[in-house]
Nucleic acid binder design. Structure first.
Lengths: 194, 194, 194, 194
DNA sequence: CATGAATGAGACTTCATTCAT
DNA sequence: CATGAATGAAGTCTCATTCAT
């Protein structure tokens, strides 16, 4: 019986933590670290502000852990992409659509804010320094090289091509609302062999 | 004698105000409204924090006036561009280089932050609402249409093309450091007829 | 259980608010709006300065609400007085004693400060403009007229008599300490028929 | 020649100082020490705020010297009054009219503020302590006693009578605008023998 | 676990005072 | 002497964080 109750508590705990975390991602992505007040996160999650401190030590600590999670998730998604079946250009199309898909945007915005914007805790700077864009370029290199060999992908230095394309995709994603996101087919013109 | 003194005071006033303004643009662009502390601006300008209030009423008021200035400047630059001599594709090349030129970046970041990010004063929201991306598209429309007629610019809905290209350029510019900015010629692939 | 807790919170809230309000009346009455620092009010109430802002939006807002309350209370007290049993001169004696009674002084001082002194928020000016002394005179008019008919009250324009007496009483009350407050019977000489 | 210039400077100096002093009396009387900003005084005097410090060391120092002056002036005026020709009741009538005369009000308000209101510098408290109302009562005592002997003035303890009457007059004067000041003849009812 | 009252560090803003011109 | 730019102490206000219930 106590076992059952404990498990239930555990479940409530996890559920609440998830609730708060996803509220936090949303608000941090939109407002940044200094623009986010604890009360915004708890209001978004529909709980009292005091509850925040049952689950996280400080605002900064939460921000750091979210950035860490975003870094890990983004790397994993690249790896998953590469392991898919299909031609290189198809995979790049999937990558493009995936990045433009608004659902992943908040995590991406977090990374963007951590990388370029505002004051971030030292721990975040370190995380970002340890995961430069270069890492993503390197992981995508085999894919693009194969595409070039197949004649699907434009010629030229593949690393420069990848870096440029990731920059464009990241930029488009970061802009978000207020700008009109180009269609995938148009964006692919950057990498397709003419 | 008093005339001379008056002029000198005037000069000091203008100079200090310019000093503070450009410090503010820099810091606001980097940190956003809530991430910018008055002390950051005055430290950047090398004056005491109290002096800020001889030149501006509040932090918000300054932010608003800077956004207004950025809106006006950006419109003027588009108009200047169109009036240049040269073929459409040359003008678009100049536009591209101009937007990637880091010197204008702070003003651009301000606009970006005002458009998408954080809490902004109502006055700023209004300014942005009154100047949607659409305005820029409309002004560039004749240029792109001429380019399409000449066969320099890719076919398709020119408004969609312009909006997409502006989004790409804006995105690249907003990312700034931490990403590798693509070369102008590569970016032009988006609009060039193959 | 939650019901009980809610009630308790409610009670704490009301109690604290009352505590702060009465501290504020006291300090505002003594020092005026610009002479009152938030820290004086919170020190008087025995709480931290931050707590002030859980209960009131700003110092000015509190001042305004206190003045409004003082206006309403003073009108109500005049009405209560008139409804008492007794001869006109008896009621005027009660009015006199009531005004000299130190316990009501703080509220009265607030009104006095709002009426004549210092910079007050526009809202306060409006309140005062809408409640000129005249209102009090009009309400007391039937009482004084009856007194004149009975031969208890001095002859002459009753409105002028009332206004003059209210001025005298207000003045004496406003002076407060440092002056010797005259006895009620002596003050009544102003209105008694000889 | 240098002598002349020096004299002229001296004259300018005195004139400016007078200008500032009378502006200060006016503003201090209306707003009190904490409610008065240096800029209000200099604006009232029509000079730059920096000039204030050519003539006075600090705001407090000026306030102190004005209170001192007000104390001395008020004592002198009582003495002058007593030395006038005429019957006691006539002199009391002149005293009454003099106190109600708005021109002297600012100095009087200063005394009132020093006596009862707000935080004042220790030097001011000392001045006030050394000049309690009692001093004025004592100086007027012969006048009232003579009036009682002549049957012009109401019977009873003359010191109490004087203190009461001064309190009433002071109160009426302090109220100033917003209240209707009673006519002299009505106020005299407090002291006249019926 | 959940709530919101309470605290205090820190940011914003005002203004007395100083000082170069 | 006169001005207004400049400084910094002090007050207003916000909000992250703690804690009693």
């Amino acid at each position: 019986m106590p076992r059952l109750k404990e498990e239930q508590l555990q479940r409530i705990y996890e559920e609440r933590k998830r609730q708060l975390t996803s509220a936090a991602v949303k608000v941090f992505a939109q407002r940044g670290l200094p623009g986010t007040k604890i009360s915004m996160i708890t209001a978004e999650a529909g709980v009292s502000h005091g509850l925040f401190y049952h689950y996280f030590k400080t605002k900064e600590e939460l921000f750091i852990s979210l950035v860490r999670e975003a870094v890990e998730t983004s790397l994993k998604e690249i790896d998953d992409l590469i392991r898919l079946a299909g031609s290189p250009i198809d995979k790049i199309r999937i990558l493009t659509e995936g990045m433009l898909d608004a659902s992943g945007a908040p995590y991406f915005m977090l990374l963007h804010r951590a990388r370029n914007f505002e004051e971030v805790p030292e721990e975040v700077s370190r995380l970002i320094r340890e995961h430069p864009m270069d890492i993503y370029v390197k992981r995508l290199l085999p894919l693009f090289e194969e595409g070039q060999q197949r004649g699907e992908i434009a010629d030229g230095d593949p690393e420069e091509l990848i870096a440029g394309y990731l920059t464009v995709l990241s930029g488009v994603m970061v802009l978000g609302n207020g700008y009109s996101t180009p269609r995938t087919e148009w964006l692919l013109r950057f990498v397709e062999k003419r």
